[in-house]
C-alpha cells in the first residue's frame, strides 16, 4: 500500500471550493499517482483519524475564501494540544484530525495542508480558469513532497 495519503476536499458544486478535487484529478494523471493513495471528499470527518494512522504522510488540499485568489499556501501540520479542540460530527479541522490520530493510535503521520485562494464560490462545477496555474503549482508541490519523502 502507498505510504502517502492525498485528500482533496471541498464542495465541487460550489466553483472554486472544488479546487482540492481539481488538484486530485490532475495528480491522478501523473506517474506520482502510483506512489500515493488519492481521495476526494466534501469535508474532513472524524473517521479519517483512523485512516491517517495507516499512512506515513498525509497531504490535504483545500480551497480558501480568506486567502488572496490564485495564491497557494503550503504549511506542514502538527498535532496540537487536545484541550479546547472541538470536534463536530461531520466536520473537523486538519489539526484536530492529526491530534485525534495521535491520541487514539499513538502516532500521527507527517502532514501538509495546501490551500488555494478562490474567488468564486457560487454554484458551478468548474473552478475559475484563473486558478489553473495555481492548481498546477499545487500538483507540482505535492509531487515534490512525495519525491522528498521517498528520498528519506
Amino acid at each position: 500500500m502507498a505510504d502517502v495519503l492525498v485528500i482533496g476536499y471541498g464542495n465541487p458544486l460550489r466553483g472554486d471550493d472544488g479546487a482540492g478535487w481539481a488538484v486530485a484529478a490532475q495528480l491522478r494523471l501523473l506517474d506520482v499517482a502510483s506512489k500515493c493513495e488519492i481521495r476526494t471528499c466534501h469535508q474532513l470527518m472524524p473517521e479519517l483519524a483512523a485512516d491517517f494512522a495507516e499512512f506515513g504522510a498525509v497531504i490535504l488540499i483545500d480551497a480558501s475564501a480568506e486567502q488572496e485568489a490564485g495564491t497557494l499556501a503550503i504549511r506542514e501540520l502538527a498535532p496540537v494540544a487536545a484541550a479546547g479542540l472541538q470536534v463536530f460530527s461531520h466536520h473537523v479541522t486538519p489539526e484536530a484530525l492529526l491530534t485525534m490520530c495521535a491520541e487514539l493510535h499513538g502516532r500521527a503521520p507527517r502532514a501538509w495542508l495546501l490551500t488555494i485562494g478562490g474567488k468564486d464560490f457560487g454554484f458551478s462545477e468548474e473552478v475559475s480558469p484563473e486558478l489553473g496555474p495555481t492548481i498546477s503549482d499545487a500538483v507540482r508541490a505535492i509531487a515534490q513532497i512525495i519525491r522528498t519523502l521517498e528520498g528519506c
Binding site: A50, A82, V87, A96, E103, L104
Partner: peptide, 21 residues
C-alpha cells in the same frame, strides 16, 4: 464533546470511529 472523549476514553472513541467507518 467527542474530543474530550478521545482523551479520557480512547477505546470508546476508537470504537465509535471504527463502527461508523
Amino acid at each position: 464533546n467527542l474530543f474530550a472523549m478521545v482523551e479520557s476514553h480512547p477505546q470508546i472513541a476508537r470504537d465509535g470511529i471504527a463502527l461508523r467507518k
